[in-house]
């Protein structure tokens, strides 16, 4: 499993590394030639226009693309130096270490407690479940709002609370990386702010990769920003590629590429 070699590589500061990664859906190339290092305990934002492959690349990191029929990933992705497509790596174990929060809040139609306990239970958690549930909810800044109604359905919460429940569920299995696919796109501004504040706290313990359409959000929360763009093909499709990847402050104030400049200033996209 992963654990043996992680201890050696844990000292390195790169959590995830994509080298020359291309993703195909069937015979269609969706994203090509992505090189990217995700540093530990940092927030990395993926920005870019729709259809440029941000979410596709995000899903590569926990092999969720495996679940899409016909999807194929080329190139090399390493997690603490280990190739995640290596035969010795089980995607089920990888996904415990690299969690994901989705675009729309998707709590299980079960109690708040069960939402958190499920992941821990299937991954063989041995400790006290009550404590884990409390700590995870505290970690997601949701405990005070739900501590008196843990037996109620997760679906009874507001959208913003549901998304924080999903974050609590993700951190309950103690991952190292949390992938967030536009986590605030279905939330109102106040809930968005809460999730953003939460991300700053989570950064202490986790590495976060966030896909966002909201450039203010990227500039507010992230340390590094990757700008993706898409080029049209002759057959009318689009192929995404990574334009520029740098410190967030550079991307927004002094980008090296003209298209980045145009995108972050709102001139296209």
């Amino acid at each position: 499993m992963i654990s043996n070699s992680v201890s050696e590589d844990i000292a390195t500061d790169i959590a995830l590394k994509a080298e020359n990664v291309s993703v195909f859906y069937g015979s269609t190339l969706a994203v090509k030639d992505v090189f990217l290092d995700i540093p530990r305990n940092q927030i990395v934002a993926f920005i870019g226009p729709s259809g440029c492959g941000k979410s596709t690349i995000l899903r590569c990191f926990n092999r969720m693309n495996d679940l899409i029929p016909g999807a194929r990933v080329e190139g090399r992705i390493t997690f603490h130096g280990r190739d995640i497509h290596d035969k010795s790596i089980d995607p089920v174990e990888l996904r415990r270490r690299v969690g994901q929060v989705f675009q729309r809040p998707n709590p299980f139609p079960k109690s708040i407690y069960e939402n958190i306990a499920f992941g821990a239970r299937i991954n063989g958690y041995q400790g006290s479940m009550d404590e884990l549930v409390e700590n995870s909810l505290r970690g997601a800044a949701l405990w005070d709002e739900v501590k008196d109604k843990l037996k109620e359905s997760g679906l009874s919460l507001s959208g913003g609370q549901q998304q924080r429940l999903c974050i609590a569920r993700a951190i309950a299995i103690q991952p190292e990386v949390i992938l967030m696919d536009e986590p605030c796109s279905a939330l109102d501004p106040i809930s968005t702010l809460k999730v953003e504040e939460l991300m700053q706290q989570l950064k202490e313990s986790y590495t976060i990769v966030i896909v966002t359409h909201n450039m203010q959000q990227a500039s507010r929360v992230s340390d590094m920003t990757a700008f993706f763009n898409a080029e049209a093909t002759e057959s009318g499709g689009k192929i995404g590629y990574l334009v520029e990847y740098d410190k967030t402050v550079n991307i927004f104030q002094n980008p090296a590429q003209k298209s980045t400049q145009e995108y972050v200033t709102g001139r296209f996209g």
Partner: peptide, 15 residues
Amino acid sequence: VPDSTRLAGFALGAN
């Protein structure tokens, strides 16, 4: 049953 439920489970490392 919405696919988001399945994805949520898989993302937590469920088979």
